[in-house]
């Protein structure tokens, strides 16, 4: 079974860090300005729930999760 694909729009990101708090294996933040970065675009299936939660918590609606 394959997991989800994650798309991150860094132009929208406001660096709230909600995604890093929720799914630290999938998201990190840039040192210079706190903007989110993806550690993987295809996380393990075990990460699906937290990735969805990260997308729901993102205040800037910068995270899209595709099946």
């Amino acid at each position: 079974m394959s997991g989800v694909r994650v798309i991150l729009d860094q132009d929208k990101c406001v660096g709230s860090g909600q995604c890093v708090m929720t799914a630290p294996e999938v998201f990190d933040q840039r040192d210079e300005d706190g903007i989110a970065v993806l550690l993987t675009t295809a996380p393990d299936t075990g990460q699906t729930d937290v990735v969805r939660e990260a997308a729901a918590l993102c205040p800037a609606l910068a995270i899209t999760v595709r099946e």
């Binding site: 406001v14 660096g15 860090g17 890093v20 840039r30 210079e32 300005d33 706190g34 903007i35």
Partner: peptide, 17 residues
């Protein structure tokens, strides 16, 4: 807003905090 906010977001990144 984004231009100014991004100047001060780094110290509030999760790992830095």
């Amino acid at each position: 807003h984004a231009r100014l906010r991004r100047m001060v977001t780094a110290p509030f990144a999760i790992k830095r905090v």
